[in-house]
Nucleic acid binder design. Structure first.
Lengths: 359, 359
DNA sequence: ACTAGCAGTCTTGTTTATAGAGTGCTAAGT
DNA sequence: ACTTAGCACTCTATAAACAAGACTGCTAGT
């Protein structure tokens, strides 16, 4: 028996299948993707690409099933691609097409209408992914490899309340309210922020911690409160790398026939809603390069079957990265999904590099 | 025939029903809420609160149906509350209980563990609402009645990029990247931000617009770019009042029997995902006081039937307000939902007033 | 090596029968 | 004038039986 394929070890030797078997497998996947109905020999024959009879096709189908690329939900039904079948399709059979130029242009155009606002970019990316693939999309904000301080600002809201705004190196902004133990003036706040800004410079969290000089300096009460909060904030950023998750197109997926009944929709919703699931899955993506495909949970993720993910890291080479991609039924149009995800990742790469990468 | 009840005009005269009819209607709603199965005379009898025979109950049920409080999905099935029935239940019959003190304490405790961070509050509120009511929750950020400037900051990211951070009166923070036409220094940026900060003061958008003085002042290129962006940003805030929507517990609702099949789940998803639907619904809530209940769309919202909303505005009296609440099947536990929504709204009121309200 | 033909298997849809839930009505009781 | 026991009736839900159809796998012939 062949070893099980998995996301980690998923290359399937191309030679195990004859050209005709490859063609048949391809047709099965394509037809099943369209119709969501098991594909039989007559349907394949009707496709016209094969010049052989249904009997021959049946023989090949039997072989493909034996090899684990297809299965029957029951005797006397057509064939459905197995996870292994999808895997083979994706790696060996699929027509790798790029998004058409008009589509690319249209997408770029939508971005150019936006201001230089990361949040809007993420939202738009999620919307485009969902719309183009007719699946649900996920986009996480790009996060710097190491958390480093950039700037802080203290703003007096009223005499009992101070707004602390911290800007980190990756451009992310964090806010928090502070209650000073005694009334302060905006001038006093400006002094503190100037001092801390020049003190902290652009240092990474580790550097700041190491810098014993900070303790040495005399800090009066509120100053050290601010410093503590800044450090704590940076620590939080370091720990949870998914600051925000944008998602769109859930309604696409709940129209799919495999989700209308059965609890399978809840798998998608769970993945999208429960932060730690998403972190588990996306966490393993971070170090990968290019578009990654997880088909039907593929052994590693027990809680999702019948659900596939097409994901890609994106960001600025070596400095910051996020994840974007789509989630849909195993029976998804992988070609379109992959090309869309790849294009969006590249687009975000270049947008981010243009804007932030000049350093 | 009676006039249709609606969210606007929904008081139903208490006198139309006898005490026994009221009791029966109450039992029907309660039982149906639990079981999701049409309630028949024997079930009502078994409840034990009524000392009469099933035949008598049947007569009363027939009357209640005639009056429009109940209906049968088909002859020889039990009764299901109609929208009117739910309405009457909610207004006249329901046991109005507060959240128990231990529950209140537990919730407050969760908040006190958080920093003074609005975003975290919103998230927690959404989580608590969803968990407590076993429905999906929605929370929108409180937004000031009028958009007013508070502070801006310009931070040099690199020589081709400037981060603009704008803080508005309601404490909301907005960021955007700007590309100066020619390289600038941080010192130059500080000059600009100081100038604009003192110029704009704490003025509302309308005041700024009216202030022709701004045009009069000579502004060199980048300075006016910044000003333009600030104004545009404030305009956007004024137009769309839902800056962010937090939601949780969608998985609760998709376990409900009326949603497992049929397209009814998509109603909930649509309301939660599609911004403009939410704005339509929540928009009418803003001026109301206290907990509002929309049952099964109730005529006004055609796109939702079999879905109910329990919502409440919250915020700082007269200055800022958002909406929080839950969305679930019409067959939801209104008592629990209402008491939870009310408590959370009050809690947020007091938290916000404590922090921001001191002005 | 391929294919026509066919028996066999399984699903799906339809029909029919049955049991059960619940009603509405009537007639009798309080 | 209510209330209630009893019963006929209706409709659903479930199961069983059956026919039609979809595919297959196999065999034998090209």
């Amino acid at each position: 028996m062949m070893t099980e394929s998995s996301a980690q070890n998923n290359r399937i030797n191309a030679d195990v299948l004859s050209e005709r078997q490859r063609e048949i497998l391809k047709i099965v996947v394509e037809e099943y993707t369209i119709g969501a109905v098991p594909v039989g020999s007559f349907t394949i024959r009707a496709e016209g690409r094969l010049g052989v009879s249904t009997a021959t096709i049946r023989n090949e189908l039997a072989t493909l099933e034996e090899l684990g690329f297809l299965y029957q939900p029951h005797t006397s039904a057509g064939r459905i691609p197995s996870i292994k079948g999808y895997r083979y399709f994706v790696e060996q059979l699929m027509d790798q097409v790029e998004l058409s130029l008009p589509e690319q242009r249209k997408i770029r155009h939508q971005f150019y209408q936006l201001q230089l606002n990361l949040e809007q970019w993420m939202r738009l990316t999620a919307a485009i992914l969902a719309h183009n693939t007719r699946a649900a999309s996920v986009v996480t904000t790009p996060q710097g490899k190491q958390v480093a301080f950039k700037h802080l600002e203290l703003i007096l809201i009223n005499d009992a309340l101070v707004l602390l705004v911290v800007v980190l190196q990756d451009g992310s902004i964090h806010q928090e309210m502070l209650v000073p133990s005694e009334p302060v003036s905006q001038d006093a706040l400006s002094l503190i922020s100037n001092k801390l800004n020049s003190l902290l410079g652009s240092s990474a969290l580790a550097d700041i911690r190491a810098n014993r000089q900070l303790d040495g300096k005399e800090m009066h009460g509120f100053e050290s409160v601010v410093l503590q909060r800044v450090l704590q904030l940076m620590k939080q950023c370091e720990e949870s790398w998914t600051s925000a998750v944008y998602s769109d197109g859930l309604e696409n997926v709940l129209r799919e026939p495999e989700f209308v009944e059965s609890g399978k929709l809840s798998q998608v919703v769970r993945v999208l809603q429960q932060r730690h699931l998403l972190e588990t899955i996306l966490g393993r993506m971070m170090d990968a390069a290019g578009v990654q495909i997880i088909i039907g949970g593929e052994g590693t993720y027990e809680y999702i079957d019948d659900v596939s993910l097409v994901l890609s890291p994106y960001g600025i080479r070596g400095r910051a990265s996020g994840i974007l991609g789509v989630i849909g039924p195993t029976r998804m149009a992988y070609g379109r999904a992959i090309s869309t995800v790849r294009y969006m990742a590249q687009l975000m790469d270049s947008l981010l590099t243009n804007v932030y990468g000049g350093e």
